[in-house]
Amino acid sequence: MTFKLIINGKTLKGETTTEAVDAATAEKVFKQYANDNGLDGEWTYDDATKTFTITE
């Protein structure tokens, strides 16, 4: 399955995708991506669209 991450950061904005077997796996990938890029914010997830959002 394809999951999307929408980034609404103070300095970084955009989106990225990952292929994962489930939402929990995708969340780990996206949280590592956010950590690697210095993002810290509030996370939301929409199961209907398989989309995570981080807002700083």
Rank of each mutant, 00 (worst) to 15 (best):
K50M: 11
K4I: 13
E19V: 15
T16Y: 15
G38P: 01
D40M: 13
T44R: 12
A24C: 09
K50N: 10
T18G: 03
A34W: 03
E27R: 08
K10A: 10
I54K: 01
D22W: 03
T2H: 10
E19L: 13
N35V: 15
D40I: 15
N8C: 08
I6H: 05
T16G: 04
M1G: 12
I54C: 05
A48D: 13
I54D: 00
F52I: 01
Y33F: 12
K13N: 09
T11F: 14
T16A: 13
T49P: 02
I54S: 01
E27L: 15
T2W: 15
A20D: 02
N8Q: 11
Q32R: 10
E27D: 05
T51A: 05
A26C: 02
A34T: 07
Y45A: 01
A48V: 14
Y45H: 02
N35L: 13
D46H: 06
F3W: 07
T49D: 06
T11W: 13
T16R: 15
G41A: 03
K28H: 09
E27V: 06
D47G: 10
L12C: 10
A23P: 09
K4C: 06
G14S: 14
T18L: 08
T53R: 06
T11D: 11
D22I: 03
G38I: 04
E19W: 14
L5F: 09
F3I: 02
Y33V: 04
A26K: 00
T2D: 06
A48E: 12
G41T: 02
K4F: 13
A34S: 05
N8Y: 14
N35T: 14
E56F: 11
A26L: 01
V21R: 07
A26M: 01
D22N: 09
D22R: 03
T17I: 10
K10V: 13
T11S: 08
A23F: 13
G14F: 14
D36N: 09
A20W: 02
E56K: 04
Y33S: 02
K50Q: 10
A48H: 11
T53G: 03
E19F: 13
Q32E: 08
V29L: 14
F3P: 00
G14D: 08
G41K: 01
K31F: 06
I54M: 05
A34Y: 03
T51E: 04
T16H: 14
I54P: 01
F30D: 00
K10N: 10
A23H: 09
L12N: 09
K31W: 07
E56V: 14
L5T: 01
G9L: 15
W43H: 01
Q32I: 11
I6M: 06
D47R: 07
K4N: 05
T49Y: 05
E56Y: 10
N8V: 08
Q32F: 05
E19R: 08
T44N: 06
F30M: 02
D47P: 14
G38E: 07
V29D: 05
I6T: 05
I54T: 02
G9M: 15
A23Y: 12
G9Y: 12
I54E: 00
K50S: 06
I7W: 15
K28P: 03
T16Q: 13
E19I: 15
T53P: 00
E56M: 14
T16L: 14
K31E: 04
L5S: 00
Y33W: 15
T17C: 07
M1F: 13
T55M: 06
D36Q: 12
L12H: 13
T51P: 00
K31M: 10
T51Q: 04
T18C: 09
E27T: 04
A23Q: 10
E56L: 12
L39F: 11
D22P: 01
A34M: 06
K28V: 10
T44L: 07
K31H: 08
A26H: 00
T53C: 06
Y45M: 02
T53A: 05
F52L: 01
E56T: 09
Q32K: 15
T17R: 07
K31V: 07
N37W: 15
A48N: 13
E15S: 12
A48M: 13
